[in-house]
Design a binder for these strands. Structure first.
Length: 803
DNA sequence: CTAGGGTTAG
C-alpha cells in the first residue's frame, strides 16, 4: 500500500518510510522492491544519518537480502555504502551468508576484513567462519582462527570449542579435534556429536567411533537421534551388523525410529550388511512421510544385495508415484545407473541419461561421473569418451573414471594420453587414478611409464595402500620385471588375498610354476584362506609350466580341503593343463564329467592343444562343437586353419578362411610393440611406416644370414596365405615381433634386455627365429604374448616350446 | 540420512 502510494506521488521516502518498506519487503521477499529501497537509502539517507541509524539500516538491508538468498546483493550493501559498519553483528550476518551457501572463501575474506577494520570478532563469529573452513578443508586458516579465538579467550566457550572440534574433525585432523575436545570444561551432546561424527566420517576409524560412543555414555550424556544418524554410516561401512542391530533396538526404545533420518540410516545400514529383508521391513514400516533420500537408500539396498530386477522395478515405482513432492534426485539416478552397470545394460543407462537431460541434472558432476563410468562398464567406451569430452566441468574422478574405462576396454594407450592431459589441466591424480594408470602400463608393458607412476605413488604416500602395491606387483610382472614385482610384494607391510593372487600369477605367466606353488605354500603357512581366484592363478601357473600332477592335486583339494566349488574358469584351466600336456583321452573324459555344459573357452583350449600336437581329427570335432555353440571367434578360425596348414591340408585351410570371411570375422592384425626411452613404438606385420624402417629391414637381413647358417628355414606352415615357399619365408621375416626385436637391437645398449609385447600369441616361426637371435646376439630377449612370457636366452625359451 | 573413480584370475 505504502509502496504504491509513494510511487504515484513521486515523493521521496523518509528514513522512517524506508524502514517500514524494508519490513514489508522482508515479508513479501520481493527482491526488486528491496533493491529500490536500497538505492534510495544510499542516495538520500545513509550519508546523512547518525551511526545508530546507519547501523540499523544496514543490518535490516543485509537481513533482507540474506532472507531472499541473495548474498551477492547483501555484499553490495557493504561495497556501496560510503562508510563501513562498525558493529560485528552486521559482519557476522554477511559471513554467515557466505559460510552457508558459498562461495566459502568469501566468508573467510570477510572475516579477515573485520580484523583489518579493527572490529573484534564475537563468540558468534567463530562458529560461522569455522564452518567455511571445514567446507574448504582449509586447515591452515582454521588453525589461524583458532589462535585468534585463544587470544580473545573465547576458545573455552562451548559454542566456539565445539565449532573448533567440528572444523578439525571435518578436515581430518582428528588428533587436534580430540585435544580441543578433551580440554573443554564441559561437553554437551552437540560437542560429543561433533567429535563422533568426525571419526565416523573418516570410515577407517570405526573402532574409535564406537569407543567414543561408549565414553559418551560413561559421561552420562545420552546419544540423541543426531548421534545415531552420525554413527550409522560408519556401522554400515564397517559391516558391523551386530552393532547396527543394537542401535536399531536402542532407537526403537527411544522412538528415534520415527525420525526419518535415523530410519533412513538404519535402512541403509541393513542394506550394506546384505540384510535385504530388514531394510525393506523398515521401509514399509516407517509411519512418517518418506523422502527421496529414503527411496534412494532403499534403491541402493536392492543394488548392493544384487536384486537388479527389483531395483529397476522399484525405481519405476518411484517414477510412477503421483506425489509431486517426490522426485528422483541425481543421487537416485546415480544409484539406478549402478544397477545398469552391474547388468551391463547400456540401453537403460541411455534412458537415464535422457531423463537426466530433461530434468536438468546432466551438469551434476557426481551424476555425470557415474554416467560416464556406466557407459564404460557396459563396454560402450565411445559413448563414455564422448560424454567425457562434452562435460564442461571435470574433476579428478571424471579423469579416473575415463582412464579406467579405457583400460578395461583395451584402450590402454588412450588411457595414458588422458592421464597426461589430466596433469596438464592441473588436476592431481589420486589413488583411484593410479589404480587405472598402473594396469594401463601393465597392458602396454610400458615399464618407464610404470616406474614413473611408482615414483609418483611413493612421493604422494600411496605406497602404503595395499591396492596400489597389488597393482604395482601386476604392473612389474607384466613389464617383465618379476624380481621387482617380488620386491614390492616382500616389502609390503600388509598383504591381502589379492596381493598373493597377483604374485602367484606373476610367477605363472613367467613360466615359473614351481615358484608359484612355493608361494602358495607360504600363503597357507601364513594362515591366509585362498579364494576362488587363487586357484585360477595356481592352476594357470601349473598349466604354463606343464605341472600336470600338481595341477590335478590342487584342483581336487580346492573342493575337498578348502570348500571351494570349482567354477567354469577352473574347469577351463584344467582343460588347458591336460590338453597342453597332450593327454587327450583324459581331457575328453574330464569334459564329459563336468557338472555343466562345456562352453566355448573349454573347446578353444582343447583346439589350441590340437594344433600344437597336430591332432587333426580331434581338432575338427572340437571345431564343429564350437560352430554348433554359435560362438565362433576369429581366434578359433585361425587355430583351425593353422592346424590344417601345419599338416599340409592347404585346401581345408583356405576353406576355413573363406568361411571366416563369410561369417564376418576379421583376423585382428598382429601387432607388437617395444618401449624405448618412454616412447612406445608399435609395429604391424610387414610394416614399413616406421621412420627407421630401412635400418630395421637391414638388421633382419643381416640376422637371416647367420640364422640360415644355424639351419633356419622359415616354417611355411605359419603363413596363412597359400603362396610359394620362398615368398612365405619373406612374409614371415617381417612379422611384427621380428620388426620390434630388430628395432630393439638397434636402439638399446647391449647390456639391456629386450622386451617386446604382442597382442596375439607369438607365431611358431618367430618363436624358432627368436631362439636363434638370442643365441647369435647373446642378448636376453623377452616376448610377452597374449597369454604368457617367453624368456629367450642362449637359444632356448623357458616355455619349453609349449604355449 | 542417500551418492561418483579402484588392485588379482579367465
Amino acid at each position: 500500500m505504502l509502496w504504491a502510494m509513494h510511487l504515484k506521488s513521486h515523493k521521496s521516502f523518509s528514513l522512517a518510510d524506508c524502514k517500514h518498506l524494508l519490513e514489508d519487503c522482508l515479508q513479501s521477499k520481493s527482491v526488486f522492491q528491496g533493491k529500490t529501497v536500497h538505492q534510495h537509502l544510499i542516495k538520500n539517507h545513509i550519508p546523512h544519518g547518525d551511526d545508530d541509524h546507519f547501523n540499523q539500516t544496514i543490518e535490516k538491508l543485509t537481513l533482507f537480502y540474506l532472507a531472499c538468498n541473495k548474498v551477492e546483493y547483501a555484499r553490495r550493501v557493504f561495497d556501496r555504502s560510503p562508510r563501513k559498519p562498525k558493529k560485528v553483528v552486521i559482519w557476522n550476518l554477511l559471513i554467515k551468508g557466505y559460510a552457508w551457501n558459498g562461495p566459502f572463501g568469501e566468508a573467510i575474506n570477510f572475516y579477515y576484513k573485520t580484523l583489518e577494520l579493527g572490529i573484534q570478532p564475537s563468540k558468534f563469529t567463530f562458529p560461522i567462519v569455522l564452518k567455511a573452513c571445514s567446507a574448504l578443508q582449509a586447515i591452515e586458516t582454521g588453525k589461524d582462527i583458532h589462535v585468534h579465538a585463544k587470544r580473545l579467550r573465547l576458545d573455552s566457550d562451548v559454542y566456539v570449542s565445539t565449532a573448533l572440534v567440528d572444523m578439525y574433525a571435518k578436515c581430518g585432523c582428528l588428533d587436534d579435534a580430540e585435544t580441543v575436545f578433551n580440554e573443554m570444561p564441559h561437553r554437551d551432546v552437540v560437542a560429543w556429536n561433533s567429535m563422533i561424527s568426525g571419526f565416523s566420517l573418516h570410515g577407517v576409524y570405526y573402532h574409535d567411533t564406537i569407543r567414543l560412543l561408549v565414553r559418551m555414555q560413561n559421561d552420562f550424556i545420552s546419544p540423541n537421534s543426531s548421534t545415531i544418524a552420525a554413527v550409522l554410516p560408519a556401522v554400515a561401512q564397517a559391516n558391523a551388523l551386530s552393532h547396527g542391530k543394537a542401535m536399531h533396538g536402542f532407537c526403537a526404545r527411544r522412538a528415534y525410529i520415527d525420525d526419518i533420518i535415523v530410519a533412513t540410516g538404519l535402512l541403509d545400514m541393513y542394506g550394506k550388511c546384505q540384510y535385504m529383508d530388514y531394510a525393506r521391513r523398515i521401509f514399509d514400516k516407517v509411519s512418517i512421510v518418506k523422502n527421496e533420500v529414503t527411496w534412494s537408500a532403499m534403491l541402493g539396498a536392492y543394488v548392493i544385495c544384487d536384486f537388479m530386477r527389483e531395483a529397476l522395478e522399484f525405481f519405476l515405482e518411484m517414477m510412477r508415484l503421483k506425489d509431486f513432492t517426490l522426485f528422483p534426485t541425481p543421487v537416485t539416478l546415480a544409484t539406478v545407473l549402478r544397477a545398469c552397470a552391474k547388468l551391463t545394460d547400456s540401453s537403460i543407462g541411455r534412458c537415464i541419461h535422457c531423463y537426466a537431460i530433461k530434468s536438468g541434472f546432466v551438469s551434476d558432476l557426481m551424476l555425470g561421473n557415474t554416467l560416464l563410468s556406466t557407459y564404460a562398464k557396459c563396454g560402450v567406451v565411445i559413448d563414455a569418451k564422448q560424454f567425457f569430452y562434452e562435460m564442461d566441468l571435470k574433476d579428478s574422478v571424471s579423469y579416473s573414471a575415463i582412464i579406467s574405462g579405457c583400460v578395461q576396454n583395451g584402450h590402454a594407450k588412450e588411457a595414458l594420453r588422458l592421464f597426461h592431459k589430466m596433469q596438464l589441466s592441473g588436476l592431481y591424480p589420486e589413488l583411484a587414478t593410479m589404480l587405472g594408470v598402473l594396469p594401463a602400463c601393465a597392458h602396454l608393458a610400458a615399464i618407464q611409464h610404470g616406474s614413473c607412476s611408482h615414483c609418483y605413488a611413493i612421493v604422494h604416500g600411496l605406497t602404503t595402500e595395499i591396492t596400489i602395491c597389488n597393482a604395482l606387483i601386476d604392473m612389474y610382472a607384466k613389464c617383465g620385471r618379476i624380481d621387482t614385482a617380488r620386491r614390492v610384494f616382500d616389502t609390503m607391510h600388509k598383504r591381502d588375498i589379492v596381493s598373493w593372487n597377483a604374485i602367484i600369477i606373476a610367477y605363472g605367466i613367467h613360466g615359473l610354476g614351481m615358484e608359484a606353488l612355493l608361494l602358495f605354500d607360504n600363503m597357507l603357512v601364513e594362515c591366509l584362506e585362498p579364494d576362488d581366484v587363487t586357484f585360477i592363478c595356481l592352476l594357470s601357473a601349473c598349466s604354463h609350466s606343464g605341472l600336470v600332477t600338481e595341477g590335478k592335486h590342487w584342483f581336487n583339494a580346492m573342493r575337498q580341503d578348502f570348500g571351494i566349488t570349482p567354477r567354469m574358469e577352473h574347469y577351463i584351466c584344467m582343460a588347458d593343463l591336460l590338453s597342453r600336456a597332450g593327454k587327450f583321452e583324459e581331457v575328453c573324459n574330464f569334459i564329459e564329467k563336468m557338472p555343466f555344459e562345456p562352453d566355448v573357452h573349454i573347446w578353444s583350449a582343447l583346439l589350441a592343444a590340437c594344433r600344437v600336437h597336430r591332432n587333426v581329427e580331434l581338432g575338427e570335432e572340437v571345431s564343429k562343437k564350437i560352430q554348433k555353440l554359435g560362438h565362433g571367434s576369429t581366434g578359433n578360425f585361425v587355430l583351425l586353419s593353422n592346424m590344417y596348414s601345419t599338416v599340409g591340408r592347404w585346401d581345408d585351410a583356405a576353406q576355413i578362411r573363406i568361411l571366416q570371411r563369410e561369417q564376418g570375422f576379421k583376423k585382428s592384425p598382429g601387432c607388437s610393440w617395444i618401449e624405448i626411452g618412454g616412447v612406445v613404438h608399435a609395429f604391424f606385420g610387414g610394416d614399413r611406416s616406421h621412420p627407421h624402417s630401412p635400418q630395421i629391414n637391414n638388421k633382419i637381413d643381416e640376422l637371416l644370414v647367420e640364422m640360415r647358417r644355424l639351419g633356419y628355414h622359415g616354417e611355411a606352415s605359419y603363413v596363412l596365405q597359400d603362396v610359394e615357399d620362398e615368398e612365405k619365408e619373406h612374409i614371415l621375416l617381417y612379422h611384427s615381433e621380428k620388426l620390434a626385436i630388430a628395432f630393439g637391437l638397434l636402439n638399446l645398449s647391449p647390456n639391456k634386455p629386450i622386451l617386446v609385447t604382442k597382442n596375439l600369441r607369438v607365431c611358431g616361426d618367430c618363436h624358432t627365429a627368436i631362439k636363434l637371435i638370442s643365441l647369435i646376439t647373446k642378448r636376453n630377449i623377452t616376448v610377452r604374448d597374449a597369454s604368457r612370457f617367453h624368456h629367450f636366452k642362449d637359444g632356448i625359451c623357458n616355455c619349453g616350446d609349449f604355449w
